[in-house]
């Protein structure tokens, strides 16, 4: 039994979960900033991303060293490869949270449209839920749980579509135009976070089944704005 190797793997996985927790915090911060039009908090979110990046880099280096030194095979190899991907997805999510924070700052002085504001918060909560499901299914090696991410993603997509319909109505109002256009990007960003969560679920499935497959059919027409 290669105890020290196992310890290294465990440590990497723990770091990854830690990164996931940071992503959740940074996303929550971004959503709060958006809701309260809090520029200060938005700045903090942007600064906090450095911590995520640092952890991301550390995990990346750890995986590189592990591959070079331990030559993992079988389940160990799949775990390392899955972690390599999950790490990247989490880092992207944090970047999206920063995007939301930046957009928030740009329109902080505009009075928002309450229904739209409402559906953005709803999407944000769904995205958070998806990140949690993705991280838990990875931690628990739970294939069924990972597969539920597809349905959750469907919900975000639907909210996103509804959001776009409402935008089409509002874009004619000049005082709201800028805010609406910026918020389209926020909506799109939240939808992308959901996609990354699904990708993490796919990595969990790969780890457990050793099969490469997409949860959603790639040929299926994607419905983005």
């Amino acid at each position: 039994m290669r105890v020290s190797f196992q310890e290294e793997l465990d440590q990497l996985e723990a770091s990854l979960q830690e990164e996931g927790a940071l992503v959740l915090r940074v996303l929550r911060g971004a959503l709060n900033a958006l809701e309260q039009r809090d520029v200060e908090l938005a700045d903090e979110v942007i600064a906090f991303d450095d911590d995520v990046d640092r952890l991301y880099l550390q995990i990346e280096l750890g995986i590189q060293t592990l591959l070079a030194r331990q030559t993992p095979v079988a389940t160990d190899l799949r775990l390392v490869l899955a972690m390599l991907h999950i790490n990247l997805h989490l880092e992207r999510m944090a970047d999206y949270a920063v995007t939301i924070a930046k957009l928030t700052k740009l329109v902080a002085d505009v009075e928002p449209d309450p229904p739209l504001q409402q559906s953005l918060q709803e999407m944000g909560e769904r995205a958070e839920e998806m990140i949690r499901v993705a991280l838990d299914s990875f931690a628990d090696r739970d294939l069924d749980r990972a597969e539920t991410l597809v349905e959750l993603d469907e919900l975000i997509d639907r909210t996103n579509r509804r959001f776009v319909e409402r935008v089409v109505e509002l874009v004619a109002e000049p005082e709201l135009r800028e805010w609406v256009l910026r918020m389209v990007l926020v909506s799109r960003t939240l939808e992308r976070i959901g996609d990354h969560a699904v990708d993490i679920g796919e990595q969990v499935a790969y780890l457990l089944t050793a099969e490469f497959r997409e949860f959603t059919d790639a040929s299926h027409p994607e419905e983005h704005v």
């Binding site: 915090r25 600064a47 906090f48 911590d51 952890l55 550390q58 750890g62």
Partner: peptide, 12 residues
């Protein structure tokens, strides 16, 4: 929750 934590020190 936004206060940065010193993650670097833990995983170095």
């Amino acid at each position: 929750p936004m206060r940065p934590v010193d993650v670097a020190a833990q995983t170095e």
